[in-house]
Design a protein around this nucleic acid. Sequence first.
DNA 1: GCCAACGTTGGC
DNA 2: GCCAACGTTGGC
Length: 152
Amino acid sequence: MAYWLMKSEPDEFSIDDLVAAPKQSTPWFGVRNYMARNYMRDSMKVGDGVLFYHSSCEVPGIYGLAKVSSTPYPDDSQFQKKSPYFDPKAKREEPRWMLVDVKLDRKTRVMPLSEMREHPELADMITLKKGNRLSITPVTPAEWKFIANLLK
DNA sequence: GCCAACGTTGGC
DNA sequence: GCCAACGTTGGC
């Protein structure tokens, strides 16, 4: 089992949107970065742990724990002309953008980015590294365990 | 709003 | 294949 940190802007899709979603599950639509796509398409497995992270907001940080809840399938928004995520080069027969479903495990207290930075145990997290902008990053089992323990 | 850092595009 | 220009991300 692997672990991941997945960023979402709360204006776009928040932890409360996930709480309110049918089956508390959502397709992780809108990723348009190849490395992040490859993680979803090639590496994620059903049951993998997800740290649900809010970015570009007042208090960036972890807001909940979730799980990967589907195998990969095409992101439908790439075909929707009216969507901001429309990709004119994507074809139904040959989709470019794949996603997985993410299902809520539980909403937690907020663990702000500032708090994450205080823990030496988390210093090597990819998302804390200078300049990193990737919206999906792997998390080590030790990092997951440490964070989950603080979010009990 | 600023700006550093990064990814993508496109001309050559 | 190189690389400058541009657009985006995301913390502050």
